[in-house]
Every structure is written in structure tokens, then in C-alpha cells.
Simulated scan of single mutants.
Amino acid sequence: MAGSPRAARGKAGTALIGTVTALALCSGAWLLHSGTAERPPPQPSAAQASSPEARSAPAAAPLPPSPPDRVRAPAIGVDAPLTGLGLTRQGSLDVPPPHHDNLAGWYEAGTTPGERGTAIVAGHVDNADGPAVFYRLGALKKGQVIEVERRDGTVALFAVDAVEVYDAKAFPDEKVYGAAARAELRVITCGGAYSKRTGYQGNVVVFAHLTGTRP
């Protein structure tokens, strides 16, 4: 498995979280148990890939640090509480409890969403009972909005820059987890090819940047 370095603690560790983190979200339990592998979750098209224009789009000034409490993506019906995620004994990011289908997590030792840098949010695509919080993540489109409700009373608004899917063996750690000069957000779940033996073979990653706030 490529890209699974041990993560350091503290904000500097955000760039070092490996794909062990995301692969833990990827059992594909519902597809396996229901026999519906022919109807997998939506995957992003090539038109949603990263572009120089998106990477240079105007951004809002970063916000002071504040823990996030909720994430919303109205275009795909996501409205979910956030739980803090730490590191496992192996040094990878832990994942939300799989039995909570409408729960996402954020890397609480890293950048808070809206703060300067790269904030990480992750969630399951499904569990044994059916679709989970980020089942439709691959259906997001460039320009659509992700909202993060913060504990300081602000709602950070992020515009989607790209939605990409990566095979686990070619996961671009630095591109996904690397440091950013502006306030950016990554939202991660599993996707790509599906195997009944091992589950999903890759990850869907949404790239977004801060464009403003509202109360």
C-alpha cells in the first residue's frame, strides 16, 4: 500500500497522514451484504478534476482557529455533526464509528476548517445498513458550496475546486494533505473500483477553499 507514513502529532502532522486513514473508510459493507455492487456510489467525472484556474481562485482571509461542529453540503444532501478524530496506534487517522451513518470526523490535531492551512474531514461511504454520510460525495461539482459550522458561531463557506478519485496505490499524499497558504478543506471518503474481497480500491477527495463566512 502506497503512501502510509506515520503521522506526527500537532498541526505539522497534517501533511504526513497517509492513506491508511482513508482506506479504513472503504470496506463497502453495504454493497457486499446487499448484493448491489452494480449500483455503487457516484464517482467524479474527469470534468471535476483540478485545474490551474481553480487553484488560483480568489479566497477569503483565513479565520482564527475554532473547532468545527457540523458539515453541510446542500447540493448532495449532507448535513452531519462532526466528531474529533485522533491517531491510531499505527499513526494513521482514526475514523468515525461506522454504526453512525450520519457522522463525519475532522482531524482535531491539525488545522481547523477556515484556519490557514489544510483542514481534513473524513467519513464513511456506507456501512452494513446502507449508505452513510458521504455516499454521494463523488457527485459534488466545482463551484458548489460546503459549509462548516464552527464553535465560535461562524459558518465557514468553502467553494469546491475539484473532486477527484484516486487508486490507493497512487494516492497523492502531498497534494491532498500538504500545507496550503490559504484556508483549504479536504473531504475524503472511499470510492473507485470495488472488490467483494477487499472493498473499495481508492478514495474520492474533494478540494475546496474558503470564500467567506456567515453567522
Rank of each mutant, 00 (worst) to 15 (best):
S45M: 02
A181L: 11
S195E: 12
A132E: 07
T189R: 09
E108H: 06
V125L: 13
D79V: 06
A29M: 06
L140M: 15
Y177V: 00
R39D: 13
P64D: 07
D129N: 04
P58K: 06
A183F: 01
Y177W: 07
F134V: 09
P44F: 00
E174N: 12
A193T: 11
P44H: 09
S45I: 02
A47C: 00
C26D: 11
V163K: 08
D101W: 03
Q48D: 14
A57T: 02
A183K: 03
V95I: 12
A109W: 10
V145S: 10
G3H: 05
S51P: 06
K175D: 15
S56P: 04
L16E: 15
P74D: 07
R186K: 14
V95Q: 09
Y166M: 02
E53V: 05
A104H: 10
S50D: 14
P131A: 03
Q201Y: 03
D126F: 06
D161Y: 06
P97M: 06
S34A: 14
V71T: 07
A75V: 06
N127R: 04
P97E: 04
V145M: 13
S195K: 12
V155F: 05
T154E: 13
A104V: 10
P65V: 00
V133W: 07
H124A: 05
D161N: 13
Y177L: 12
D161R: 12
A46Y: 09
V176Q: 13
Y200P: 13
A57E: 14
D94F: 00
A2H: 01
A183E: 08
H100E: 14
D129G: 13
P44E: 10
G3M: 04
Q90W: 03
V206K: 01
R116A: 15
P67S: 10
A168K: 10
L31Q: 13
D79I: 00
V78N: 08
V95E: 03
A24T: 04
E115H: 06
R72Y: 01
R151G: 02
T19K: 08
A122P: 01
L137M: 08
G77W: 08
G143E: 14
A60M: 08
V78R: 07
A180S: 15
A183W: 01
G138Q: 03
K141G: 06
A181Y: 02
